[in-house]
Amino acid sequence: MTRSLARIGAVLLIAASAAAFTACASTPAADPSNAPTGAAPAPTSPAPTAGPGATPTAAPDCTTIIPASVVAGFQKLGWTFKSEALRIDGVEVTGGIQCTWGDYTTATDHVQIFGWAPITPTAASTAQADLLASGWKREDAATGVYLTESAATAIATDDQGFGLTYLFGDGFVKYADTKQGLLLVQWPPAS
């Protein structure tokens, strides 16, 4: 089964619409008594800011590794998240998180997956070798090393044929259900 371009485009359209809306209006405070389980918690303090190369002051979570406008768009759809440790080929990456956003009120495979973790060069090399040995495809780029599952076994792919994909960069690894989805993973948050 293939994920349609319309779904990916809809998520990006939601993100853009939410960003434009939040630029023009203030958001009323959420009533925590009405928040669904797994919903993004209302911030209790200002979000941390970090410039390039700076260490973030808070740990990454499912509401901070993707833009706030995307989180708002998911919440508007009634989506919540489930979080767990980020794993690469079954091995947990310390300090990482994997978030699966979707409508958990119904049985569906219509979800979005995002992840991020700090990683050492040695651990990154080992993880990449393990993924390659498992049949994943490697692509070197200016942004880092992409490893994606084989298109022949992928449940869903983007318009370029990429399914589940890792991006190994300088001291970090990102993860998403498609290569295009990696564009939404942003940690540390932009200042």
Rank of each mutant, 00 (worst) to 15 (best):
T2G: 06
R3F: 01
R7E: 11
L12H: 10
A18C: 14
A19W: 05
F21N: 08
S26G: 13
P36F: 10
T37L: 14
T37I: 14
G38Q: 07
G38K: 04
P43G: 07
S45M: 07
G51W: 06
A54H: 06
T55W: 04
T63A: 06
T63S: 06
A68R: 07
S69C: 13
V71Y: 02
A72M: 10
G73K: 02
G78P: 00
F81S: 03
F81Y: 05
I97K: 00
W101Q: 00
D103K: 06
Y104G: 00
Y104W: 12
A107R: 13
D109S: 13
D109T: 15
I113R: 02
P118N: 04
I119A: 01
P121M: 02
A123N: 03
D130G: 04
L131I: 06
L132N: 07
W136G: 03
V145T: 15
L147M: 02
T148Y: 08
E149R: 11
A151H: 12
T157R: 01
D159C: 13
Q160H: 12
L164Y: 11
Y166G: 05
D170M: 02
G171Q: 04
G171R: 08
K174T: 07
Y175P: 06
Y175R: 00
D177I: 01
Q180G: 14
L184N: 00
V185T: 08
Q186T: 14
P188W: 08
S191V: 08
